[in-house]
Nucleic acid binder design. Structure first.
Lengths: 141, 141
DNA sequence: CTAAAACCTGACGTTGACGTCAGAGGCAAG
DNA sequence: CTTGCCTCTGACGTCAACGTCAGGTTTTAG
């Protein structure tokens, strides 16, 4: 298939595909006139790339890790790299859960008026803001 | 405390703190000579900002949500906004877990030679690459 | 008192993953 | 043939969260 169809089916832009190739993440055969052609599994491939991007990997990192997936070439370094990225993602998940819980607490509070607040320091800061006194925009309360 | 101490204690740069203030995320009192001064709870405040940044929120979004935390001002829109961001983070967690599982599969494979592979499409792509055959340029980086 | 360290306000530089535009070819249909 | 869509290669634009530098003031240590 040509680049437009791949872009549609994988849900990315044509520009992105050319960028992936430039970064060494995607390979394409060329017709005699220079047009890119892709095999079916390239769709999944692009989706994998997207997944890794969304997990916060840089194109350089992805380029380093994809050979492990493609050719099953696993050197000690690449395995260490895989493990490191896995750990990074794990840490990121933990952080996201913390952030989510934090937002949940705020949501719970903003839903139930006059309930006990678990986050005293927040009120501290709000109070500090209030006692800052003059010449600044005031909140309620 | 002054900006340098806050930066140290919160683990961010001085430049970042000035940027946060510029974006309306952080407030500071000024001494007569114009130097910024912060109360104790600003440390926690900055850490909260960092947490939200790391969760992928933009400074604009954080600026919109922080009043909910500070002054407990919760309009219907702000509550919707909170819920929306919560859901976004939740989705991001799901995606990260998928990415992590995917990496785990690769790790498991690269660790155990000649094991069954769950990701057939990957091999498909590798095969397609291989059958692409001859003129395969390598290493343009 | 003096020198170093910290702080101030601009303002330009950086990085990554593309968006977008320009100008020039290719390709199936009528 | 030619119309219209797709594709090509550069190459510059963008945006966010700061980094960094310049040039000047303030605070602190000795």
């Amino acid at each position: 298939m040509r680049i437009g169809e791949l872009a549609d089916r994988a849900g990315v832009s044509v520009r992105a595909l050319r960028y992936y190739e430039e970064q060494g993440l995607l390979y394409s055969e060329r017709s005699s006139s220079g047009q890119r052609h892709y095999p079916e599994p390239a769709v999944e491939r692009v989706q994998l790339i997207q997944l890794l991007y969304s997990a916060g990997l840089s194109s350089r990192t992805i380029a380093e890790l994809l050979p492990c997936v493609d050719a099953k070439v696993s050197t000690p370094e690449s395995r260490a790299r895989l493990a490191a990225e896995r750990e990074r993602i794990d840490g990121q998940i933990t952080e996201l859960i913390r952030a989510r819980d934090r937002l949940d607490a705020v949501i719970a509070f903003s839903g139930t008026p006059a309930s006990g607040c678990t986050y005293q320091e927040v009120e501290d800061y709000a109070d500090a803001l209030a006692s800052a006194g003059s010449g600044h925009r005031e909140g309620s309360r």
